[in-house]
Write a protein that binds this DNA or RNA. Structure first.
Length: 297
DNA sequence: TTCCAGGAGAGAG
DNA sequence: CTCTCTCATGGA
C-alpha cells in the first residue's frame, strides 16, 4: 500500500470519470484500472491517495510516476484561474473542482481514440475491454481481475475477424495499420514524445484513421499538450450554444476557443465537456444568462 | 425503425 | 476550400 500525501485541489472521481480514460471502474469509493501493464487500485481520503498495484513497485519511482499520470504536479488551480472568464465557466469550474487531465500511456491512447470515432463511451469501453481480454495479459489484484492493453506487436498480427469479434467495426483496419506502422518504425512513439504540439499532431494526422479530433485527444490526454482542442459533436454543440450562438465550422470554433481561453484551452474544454454530461440543464436560460457576466474565481 | 455516439476518408462541387 | 455520403455496432 502506497500513500500520496498533500494532494490538494484534486478530485479522483472527476478525473477518472470524465471520459478521457476508458479503463477505470468504480467499486464503492475505490477505483480499479489498468495502467501500463498493471492493475492500480486507488481511493481518495481528503488530500491523501491510497494506491495499490499488482506489480511490486519501487516506491521511489512509483510515487512520482503516479503524480505525473494524475497530473498532480501541474499547477492546475492557476490554469483554471486563467480560463475562468465568465460566470458560466465559474460555475463549471466550481462544480468539477479538482478534475485533472491524465497523462496516459501513448500507444493505448492512440488505439483507444482511433476506436472512439463515431462511437459512444460505454461501447468504446466494451471494445477496449474485449480487445484486452482477447489479446492482453491476465492481471490480478486483491481478487480483481483485468487484462493489460495489447501491445502493437500483438494487434499488428491479429486477424481482421478477431478484431471485428471484439466490436471494432470498420475501425479494425485503422487500428491494425497504426500498430504495424509502430512495429515497422515508420511511426516512432519515443520521438513523438519529444515533439511540440504542432509537430506531434501533424505526425499523428498523417496516419490513416487519425483525423484532427483524434490527434487532439492523443495530444491532450497522453502528451500533455494543453493547447490541444478536440472538437467532437459535444464541444461543437457547446460552443455554438453558449458562445457563438449560431452554427459554426470547426475552424471558427477553434479560433474563438483559443482566443477566448488561451494556451490552456484543453483544460477548459475538458471541464465544459464533462459539465454538460453531468448537468442535463446545461443550456437552460438560467445557465445561458451567466455567459455575459464576468467572473473571478 | 430510426437516431445517435469524444469521426475519418473519399468524392463532388 | 466546403459539403455530403458511407463506414460497423449496439443502445435508446
Amino acid at each position: 500500500m502506497t500513500q500520496i500525501q498533500n494532494v490538494t485541489d484534486f478530485s479522483l472521481k472527476y478525473t477518472l470519470e470524465s471520459g478521457q480514460s476508458f479503463r477505470w471502474e468504480r467499486v464503492d469509493n475505490t477505483y480499479y484500472g489498468v495502467v501500463e501493464g498493471r492493475i492500480l487500485k486507488i481511493s481518495q481520503e481528503g488530500t491523501t491517495l491510497h494506491v495499490e498495484s499488482s506489480l511490486d513497485e519501487a516506491e521511489a519511482d512509483f510515487v512520482p510516476y503516479l503524480r505525473h499520470y494524475l497530473d498532480i504536479v501541474r499547477d492546475v488551480p492557476k490554469i483554471l484561474v486563467g480560463v475562468n472568464n465568465d460566470a458560466y465557466m465559474h460555475r463549471v469550474i466550481k462544480k468539477l473542482w479538482g478534475m485533472r487531465i491524465l497523462n496516459q500511456e501513448l500507444w493505448e491512447t492512440i488505439a483507444s481514440f482511433i476506436l472512439s470515432q463515431n462511437n459512444n463511451v460505454p461501447r468504446i469501453r466494451g471494445i477496449i475491454r474485449r480487445l484486452s481480454e482477447r489479446f492482453g495479459e491476465r492481471l490480478m489484484l486483491a481478487g480483481y481481475m483485468a487484462y493489460s492493453f495489447p501491445s502493437p506487436d500483438v494487434l499488428a498480427t491479429a486477424t481482421e475477424d478477431a478484431l471485428l469479434a471484439c466490436g471494432t467495426g470498420y475501425r479494425a483496419n485503422y487500428l491494425r495499420d497504426t500498430a504495424q506502422a509502430i512495429i515497422s518504425g515508420e511511426l516512432s512513439l519515443t520521438s513523438m514524445r519529444q515533439m511540440s504540439y504542432t509537430e506531434a499532431k501533424q505526425e499523428l494526422i498523417r496516419r490513416n484513421g487519425i483525423g484532427e479530433k483524434v490527434a487532439d485527444c492523443i495530444c491532450l490526454f497522453s502528451l500533455g499538450h494543453l493547447a490541444a482542442l478536440p472538437i467532437d459533436v459535444w464541444i461543437k454543440r457547446i460552443f455554438e450554444t453558449l458562445y457563438l450562438r449560431r452554427r459554426a465550422t470547426h475552424r471558427e470554433i477553434r479560433e474563438f476557443a483559443h482566443n477566448y481561453f488561451g494556451d490552456s484551452v484543453g483544460y477548459a474544454q475538458q471541464y465544459l465537456f464533462h459539465y454538460v454530461h453531468e448537468c442535463p440543464n446545461w443550456a437552460d436560460a438560467d445557465h445561458l444568462s451567466l455567459i455575459e457576466m464576468k467572473s473571478l474565481l
